[in-house]
Structures are given as structure tokens and as C-alpha cells.
Amino acid sequence: MACGDQQPPPAPRPRVPPDWPFFLGLGILGGTYLLLILLLLVADTFYTTFGELGRILVDPEIRYSLKLSLASCSITALLSLLVAIPIGFLLSQASRQLSAYRAAHAGARLPWPFRVKQAGFLLLDTLLDIPIILPPLVIGLSLLILFRIPPFKWIDRQVTYEIPAVILAQFMVAAAFAVRTMRITFDQINPRREQVALTLGCNRAQAFRRVVLPQARRGILAAATLAWARALGEFGPILVFAGATRLRTEVLSTTVFLELSIGRLEAAVAVSLLMVAAAILVLVLTRLFGVRDTVISGAGL
């Protein structure tokens, strides 16, 4: 290049608006909700005293209610898994088969047996969501009515307003959430692995047990946690179907109601804090276990 040549001036640096306002906006929106949760907990904490907390922990009625809550929630979580794992797997399989069939016949008029299957699947999927959508009181009432009709009527005395009613009322709602969680879990698992297992000599049950189920363990843990937490907070169906009889069918959520109804606000708040502590403990433990599990196995979903 000759000395006299003039180089064109470099193009000015293109200016892009900074990213921080975007993250600040997200932070403010999300932070507001987080702050609200913290404020609720702080308000509860300051409303009661350590003395009140100590008193409720030695109160035999509340101790019974705490024990029944922990036991019934754990049984409910197990029962929920027992139905959620098979239903979630079957729904996921059916959904995949229907999608594959639709893709294979894209553009063609689908035959009526397929349309019947598709409608049946949608109906089933909707039915399983009913406990999530229905008002809790309606679930309790429906359970109460169900046990007025044979064959349930024959065991009405052993169930209604007894401990099994507490578990059944919790289970009806908690299981629906567990089913949803398991369905999503199985949807996310790569079906190719199960197919390879089939070519290696597995039947469907073996492929499920040896390949699919181990991959679903984090989802199983999440479903159990969700079911447990839902069961702990369940109130409406329990009140209607199991009642709130002290030292019989009283669980923590109904204790809060009973304490409020007799004007003992401090005790109600103290029990609420107990529920918060139990819920946080379960969530932290399961998350810790989940993380440890992932690290050890090196496996993700």
C-alpha cells in the first residue's frame, strides 16, 4: 500500500442495548413472588413464640395429629406411586403409539378404529385430571356418597370417619399429581433405549424393569415428594369424608382448622409452622437424595 493511500475509517462499533434491564425485569417479577412467600413465613414466625411451639409439641392431641399426618402422607405417597407408575407408563406408551400412527398416515383419512382409540385415550387422560380440577370439598362429598352405595357400603363403618378415610381422601388428590409427574417422566425417556433392550432379549416387562424404571427414578422421587406434600396440605376432602375428630382422624391441616375455630390463633399458626417445617424437610431431603443419586450414577433423565 502506498504511503499516500488513505485507509477508510473503521466502521463504528455496533451498539447493542445492554442485557441487564432484561434480567432485572425478570428478577423483579420473579422476586416479588419469592418475597411474598418469605414474608408469609416471616409473618407466621413472628406471630407465634417458641413457648407456643414448645407447648404444641407436647400437646398429646397435636402430637397424635402430627404422627397421623406423617404416617398417612407416607402411605398416600406410596399408594400414589403404585398407581402413578403404571398409569404414567401406559399413557406415555399409548400417546407414542397414537402419534406414530398419525405420522405414518399423515394426509390420509384415519380409519374409525384409530379414531375410537384416540377418543378413548383423550377421555382417559381427561378423567385422570378430574381430581386436580374438582374442588376438594366435592371430592370429599363424592367419596362420602360412594361409600353409601354397595359394595363400598359394606365397609362404610370401617372406612368413613376413620383413618382409612383420611388416607383415601389424601390419595384421591395426591395420586392425580403423581400420575401427571410420572407421565411427563416417561415421555422424556428416549424410547430407543427400550427398543434396544427388546432386541437384546428382553420382553416388555424386563425392558421396563431393567431399562425404563431405573431411568425414571428421579421422576419417581419427584412424584412421591409431590404426592406427600399434596397429602400434607389436603383439608377439604378429609374434613368431609373423615371428619376432624380429635385423637382419631385429626391431621395437621384439620388441627389448624380446629384451633382456629376455637379462637386459638397462636396455636393454629404454630401448627402451620410445623407443617411448613415438615414440608421443607421432606423437600430438602428428597432434593439432596435426588442430587446425590444423579452424581453417583452419572445418570440424567
Binding site: N190, R192, R193, Q195, L198, T199, C202, Q215, A299, G300
Partner: peptide, 19 residues
């Protein structure tokens, strides 16, 4: 059924079992 055919199958992504 796939298990009865005695075919060794290696898919494109390997499809290893993560657990």
C-alpha cells in the same frame, strides 16, 4: 418379537442405558 430374532442392533445414537 424383537427378542426372538437374535439381531444385534446398534442405533445411530448408541442408545446406551444411562444407569
Amino acid at each position: 418379537r424383537p427378542a426372538e430374532r437374535g439381531i444385534g442392533y446398534v442405533p445411530q445414537d448408541g442408545a446406551l442405558f444411562p444407569t
